[in-house]
Amino acid sequence: MKEKNDYEHSKRYGMVIDLDKCTGCGSCMIGCYTENNVPFKADETNKLDSINWIQVYKLTNGKPYPETEISYLPMPCMQCDGEGKLGHSPCVSVCPAVATDYDYSTGIVSQIYTRCFGCRYCMAACPYHARKFNWWDPVWPADMEKYLSPDVSPRMRGVVEKCSFCFHRYQLARNKAYYENRQTEELGEDEYQTACAEACPTGAITFGDLNNKSHAVYQLKNSPNAFRLLERLETNPKVYYLSSKKWVRRQGDNYLANEEPGLIKKIDKQHH
C-alpha cells in the first residue's frame, strides 16, 4: 500500500485466454490444484463451496439446435488494477486487516493466509467470485500429503484464498536470476509462467507482462476480438479474453438492449 504506483513502467502480469481455442477440458484447473495445493472435498457436487483458483464456465448462445453454439470460459482471479488503475482492486480496498494487497511491482493481488481472519468482505466485493473460503479443514487422501508442493503453503480452515498467478514461481524465477548474477527485474517471458498456462493442451492461455512489448500478451490484448469481463464496473482486470464470436463477447459484460459491446468500449476509451 505504501509503494508508489508507476502504472506504465512497472511490470503488470496478465493473461490472455483465447476462448476459440479452449475445449473446456479442465486441465488448467487440475494443473492449478496440484501446483497450489488447493484442497478438495470427498464430494464435490456442490460447486458453491468447493475451492478452485481457476474455474471453467460453460457459455451457450441460447439458440436451439442446429444453431446452438457453446464456448468455455476459464476464470482465474482477474488481478484487478481497480478503479482508476491505482491498485484499489475491489477486494484490496475493503479488507479490514490488510490481508490482501496489490503489489505495484507486478500488479498481482496477494492473499496473506495467516493474516486473513475470515470476514469474507473481499468475497462480497469481488464480482468474479474468484475468492474462495475454506469452509472445512483441508484434508488430503492418505499419501497425497507427500505430493504437496513445498513452495506453496496449504491454507487453514476459516480463511479466504484465491489465484496468485503462481506468485511462488515468480519468486523462484527471481531467485534463479539472482544466483546467475542477472537482473532480477528482467525475467524472460518463459522464466515465469503459471501452471494453468503450461497445463493447457491447446495453448489457449498466454501469460506474460502486459507492459512488455516483447511479451505475446502485449500484442494479443490489443486484438479487436479481445475483451475483459465486467469491464464496465471499472475493475480493470488484467485477464483478457479473445473470442471471434460476438455473442461470447457480449456475455462477458452487461449491456442494455440498445447497446453494442464494441461501441461502448470505444466511448469508454474516449472517456478516459
Binding site: M1, C95, P96, A97, V98, A99, R115, C116, F117, G118, C119, R120, F133, N134, M156, R157, G158, V159, V160
Partner: peptide, 15 residues
C-alpha cells in the same frame, strides 16, 4: 468470522 482467535487483527492490522 472464520478465524475467531484472529478477530483482533481488525484493530491491530487496521486497514
Amino acid at each position: 468470522i472464520g478465524q475467531p482467535l484472529r478477530g483482533w487483527f481488525i484493530f491491530w492490522h487496521a486497514n
